[in-house]
Structure formats: C-alpha cells, structure tokens
Design a binder for these strands. Structure first.
Lengths: 168, 168
DNA sequence: GGTCATGGCGTTATCTTATTACATCGCCGG
DNA sequence: CCGGCGATGTAATAAGATAACGCCATGACC
C-alpha cells in the first residue's frame, strides 16, 4: 500500500512512488496511535513528524530545524526541534540513526521495534527492516552473556540495489 | 589470558582483572600489527591507543584529549586526537561506538571485524562480541534486499550481569 | 651531503550536534 | 477563579568533529 510505481511523484524522494501518500499515511497512523495512548501530538510535533517524513533519508535535527523555521517564517530554536523529536522517538514514530546523528520516520509505528536499518552510503536512503533472525541472534548471544537487552541497534552501511546498478 | 581474578588491579576498571596486562597486551599486538603492515604507530598514536585502553568503557574523543593534555603537560588540539583515532580505527585497533560518539579498544585486532557490542547503560562497560549468527543473519537479509554491505554496526544497549546483580 | 617528496603533527578557526537553565503560555481539573 | 502541569519560547553553552594552512622530521634519491 505504500509503494506505488506510477504516480505524481513525491516532493523529495528519488523513488518512483507516491511519497505524498507515505507522508499522509504516516501522519494518520501517528494521529491514531497518539489518540489511542492519550499522547498529545501537538501541531508542532506533527509538523516535525511531517518534515522528518519529507524523504526516506535520515535527516539531521538542524536540517529539520531549518525547514521548520522556513515554514513558520521565523527562526526556531534547536531545542524546539529536539523536544519534538524526543517525543516522537519515545512514541516510536521516529527512529534515530545513531551512526548518522539523524532521524527517520518509523515504517511500522506501534509494532515491535528492534531498530534495524540498511543505510545506503551513496544515495543516503535508509530502509527499516525488522528481521526476526537478527533479533533472535541478538537475543541468544545476549542471553549467553547474561546481558539484559533494552535497546538493540543495528545499522548496516552499504550500497542499495539502485545505486549498485548505477555504478557497475 | 586476559582475565585474572586475583591481581594488583588495573587503574580504572572495576572488574577484578589485571588491567595493566590488558593494556600492555593491546600495545604489543598493535606494535606487531603495525610492523607487519608497515604502518607507523608513532609515539602519539601509541599514547592515544593506551588512553583508549585505560578502561573497558568507551571514551569520548574529548575525554582522551584531556588525558593527553595532562600527560603532555600542555594543551593539545582536538584534531590531534581525532587524527590519531582515525588511524587507529582504520587499522582496526580501535572501534567507534556510534551510539555513544565514543571509542574503545578492539579486543581482537587483525581478525574479522563486524563490530558488535554489548553496552551496559549502568556501568558504561562495553564488551565486544563477534557472533557469526548475527553476522550471518545480517548477510542474509542484506542479500535478500540486494543490499551490498560495507560496514555492519551492532550496538546492543542494556544491562550487564554485574549490574543486574547489584540491582535486583 | 644536498634536496625533494611525503606523511605526521601543530595552530587556528569554524561547523554541527545537543543540552542546560530559566521564563512563559495555555489547558484542564478542582 | 486559580493552581498545577505539560508544552513551548529564549538564551547561552557544552560536546563532538572538521577545514585550511603551514611547519618539520623522515627517508628516498641524486
């Protein structure tokens, strides 16, 4: 439902999919999830979520800040963005890519979050995956070490299919 | 060979092991590895490596910088440390923990590096693991996505055995 | 021995990312 | 109405990282 090869094209992504749909979808799910939890998805937070979703590339907090300032027509403080991001991350609507100091919209908010990503070093896109084998392997080895897992982070750097084709 | 319950105790680690031995060992291996490769492990780089090894906790570049400045008796520039760290990371003597913006000595330099860590959120210690199952699982799923892996990063946050025992 | 190229290091400035401290606003329950 | 709490605004600053430039030691080569 989120991939649509023929479309009017989204504003930022290079993929041939209806990115506007991605955004709308993400916002809808966020609304639903927050309503369900009694969390307050304020205008500001919603705005930041939308900006995070502007592409499928992880975006730095200050990039988002710039966009936000532009939209609002006035300078916004970093803290404003960081606070919104903190909220969004806490509620699993956004993930932080540690190896990039950047943020990306969650593909499946509400579901189990083990936070696994394939990050393309060429185009910058990041695809969220949630492979049970990886999760299981981590769980197993952690148990073997008597280590109690709270937050597993898997970020695989490399080259995505598209970029491989472009540079054979 | 690296764990020795009865000892004169290392300078920083809380574990009951001879940490001085860890350090000496790490330096020796680094010397050997660099000699083998024709890489120049200069006095400065060796010093930084030693400081990284001062504990089994990941250390920030600026923490190392402070130590270095103190040892040298004069202020050192950040770049100095970053350059040394870059060299050490390139040669697999040190790993960068992305989720902490910090650096830690490699437990098995020269061997395969997939960079997997169990990071305790309580005591700050990080244990390097290299589980073939995790590596395999990442390889498999990457292949399924047509994704070419260059650098997998696995950083598992949680609580280590010792800290679990202390807070039951 | 001279000289030249290279790589390591020093100096300074600057950039990006993130947080601390404190004030204000607005909504909701009592 | 008012107290309290969560959200936002403002200002300053910490922490992490890099850019631009140049000097100096080392070692190869003549």
């Amino acid at each position: 439902m989120t991939t649509d090869p023929h479309s009017t094209a989204g504003p930022a992504s290079g993929h041939g999919h209806d990115h506007a749909h991605c955004i709308a979808d993400a916002l809808m799910r966020a609304d639903a999830l927050c309503a369900e939890r009694g969390a307050r998805l304020t205008a500001l937070r919603r705005q930041v979520l939308e900006l995070v979703w502007n592409s499928h590339k992880p975006r730095g907090a200050y990039a988002i800040l710039e966009d936000l300032s532009q939209r609002e027509g006035k300078a916004t403080a970093p803290l404003t963005v960081y606070r919104a991001l903190e909220f969004l991350v806490e509620h699993g609507l956004v993930h932080r890519i540690e190896s990039l100091n950047a943020y990306i919209g969650c593909a499946a908010p509400g579901a189990v979050h083990s936070g696994q990503f394939l990050v393309c070093e060429t185009c910058g896109n990041a695809v969220e995956i949630d492979d049970p084998r990886i999760r299981a392997a981590i769980g197993t080895i952690a148990a073997e070490h008597g280590f109690q897992v709270s937050r597993p982070t898997v970020e695989v750097r490399g080259t995505c299919t598209d970029c491989q084709e472009k540079t054979p």
